[in-house]
C-alpha cells in the first residue's frame, strides 16, 4: 500500500502523518486524530454528517481523500467550541431552540451553519434552509434547526469570528 506524508492544520494545531493514499479524510480525522465529532451517515456524500470546514469551504469529508487535504486548514466541530470551553453561538442556539435530538447530524450541521453565517451573516429562513440542504436530519424536521441558526445569527449580530483559524 502506497503511503504519503501529509501535513495540515486541524483546529489550529499542526498535524503530520503518513497515510495510505486511499485513506478517506473522515477516517483520517476519526481514526487517526481521534476527532470523532464528524460522523459517517450515508457513505455517498448525501447526508453531510461528515461535514468539516476546509480552507473556508464546507466539505463532505467522506468523499475526499486525506491526501487531497494536504496543506489545508481544517476546522471540525471540536474546533468550533472555544479553547476555554465556551460554546459558540451556534452551539448555544441548537440547545436553546431544541435543534437536535439524537445528535448524530449535529456536528456536521453546526459546522455547515458556521460557514453559512460566515458568508451570509443575516440569512432569511429560505436561505438557511437552502444553505443547510446538504445536511440531512432524521429527527428534528429542521424547523428548530432553522431557529437555532437564526438565534446564532442574531446573537452574533453579524460579527461572526472565525474560530481557531
Amino acid at each position: 500500500m502506497s503511503k504519503m506524508q501529509v501535513s495540515m492544520t486541524v483546529n489550529g494545531t499542526a498535524v503530520e502523518a503518513r497515510v495510505e493514499h486511499r485513506t478517506l479524510l473522515i477516517h483520517f480525522l476519526r481514526d487517526h486524530l481521534n476527532l470523532t465529532g464528524p460522523h459517517i451517515g450515508c457513505d455517498t456524500s448525501h447526508c453531510g454528517a461528515c461535514t468539516v470546514d476546509l480552507d473556508g469551504k464546507s466539505v463532505k469529508s467522506c468523499t475526499m481523500f486525506a491526501v487531497q487535504a494536504d496543506g489545508a486548514s481544517i476546522l471540525t466541530i471540536e474546533g468550533i467550541t472555544g479553547a476555554d470551553g465556551t460554546l459558540h453561538a451556534l452551539q448555544d442556539g441548537f440547545r436553546e431552540m431544541h435543534g437536535l435530538q439524537c445528535g448524530f447530524c449535529t456536528p456536521g450541521m453546526i459546522t455547515r451553519a458556521y460557514r453559512l453565517l460566515q458568508e451570509n451573516p443575516h440569512p432569511t429562513e429560505e436561505e438557511i434552509r437552502f444553505g443547510i440542504s446538504g445536511n440531512l436530519c432524521r429527527c428534528t424536521g429542521y424547523q428548530n434547526i432553522v431557529k437555532a441558526v437564526q438565534y446564532a445569527a442574531e446573537k452574533l449580530g453579524g460579527k461572526l469570528k472565525e474560530a481557531a483559524e
Binding site: 455517498t44 456524500s45 487531497q68
Partner: peptide, 25 residues
C-alpha cells in the same frame, strides 16, 4: 480527479477501481 463527487462514491461502491488517480486540484 477533479472535485471527485461522482468518481469517489463510485470508487467507494467499488463500481470504479482506477489504479491511479491524477489529482488536478
Amino acid at each position: 480527479l477533479a472535485g471527485g463527487h461522482s468518481l469517489i462514491p463510485m470508487m467507494k461502491l467499488r463500481l470504479a477501481g482506477p489504479e491511479h488517480l491524477v489529482d488536478l486540484g
